[in-house]
Amino acid sequence: MIPGSFAYHRPTSVSEAVLLLDSLGDEARALAGGHSLIPMMKLRLASPAHLIDLGGIGELRSLREEAGEIVIGAMTTQHELIGSQLLSAKIPILSETSLLIADPQVRYLGTIGGNVANGDPGNDLPAVMICLNATYDVTGKSGPRRIAARDFYQGAYFTALEPGEIVTAIRIPVPQAGHGYAYEKLKRKIGDYATAAAAVVLSMSGGKVVACSIGLTNVAETPLWAEEAAGIIVGSTLDAATVKKAVAAAEAITAPASDARGPAIYRTKMAGVMLARALARARQRAGA
C-alpha cells in the first residue's frame, strides 16, 4: 500500500493555505491529522497532486471560551480535547466522544477539524456537533464565513464547503450548566466506526426535560439531527412510553447501509437502542 507521488506544501498561516488551495485547485487536498486521507492515498482511492499540510499553522491550534461559546481551532487533536479541563467542565460530551474515536495513537494526531470536515458519515464528532448546534468557521478565497453544523453535511463526503475552503474553527454554544449528556456508541471493537451511535444533551427541571437535542452517527449518508425525536422528549419525564415514541421517530429518519457491521434493519434498531441508552444516561447526569 504505497501512495502516489505528490508535492508537499506546509503553509504557516491560514491565508497562505487558502491561497495555495485556490491556486492549485482540484489537484490539492488539505492534510490535517491524516488518519482518513493517508490510508485513502495508500489505497490509491485518493491521489492528490498537492498535499497542503495544515500542521504548521499555529493559529489553528487553540481552545478558548469567548462570549458564551467554546471556540476550538480546527487542528486541535482529539487527544487535546480529552485532556482539556475547560471542555471537561463545560462540554464533557466532547471528551466522552473523543475517547470512543479509533485508538490512542490515532487520537494523538486526529483533529477535530478533520473529523468534522471530511464528511465521512462514520466519524463521531459531526453528530455531536449537530447535537450541540455548533457552527464552523470556514475560510476560502472569498473570505471567512460560518456554517451551522446542522447545515453542513449533504451526503457521504459531500459538505457545504466550497472548493478551496477549509474549516478553521468550531464554535460551540456552551450548554446550560447542569445539563445531562451521553454519547452511546455501538461498535465491533476498538478502532471501528459506529454500527450506530447517539449523542444526547438535555436539561431537566422539576423532573421534566426542558431542552433536548439528539444527533445520530453512521446510520445515514450524513450525521443526523433527530429534531422530531428530541421534540417528543421535551416536556416529558423520560417515561418509557415517551422514550419509545422518540426512539421510533429517530429510527424513522435513519437510512443506513448494510455492511459488515450488520444489515440496515439492525443498524436502524441499534440507533434506537443507543438513543434510549443515551437518554437514560444523560438523565442520570442531569441536575435537577
Binding site: 454500527t195 450488520g262 439492525y266 441499534m270
Partner: peptide
C-alpha cells in the same frame, strides 16, 4: 457470533 447475527 458477532453482534448483528446474535441480535438476529
Amino acid at each position: 457470533h458477532d453482534n448483528w447475527r446474535t441480535w438476529t
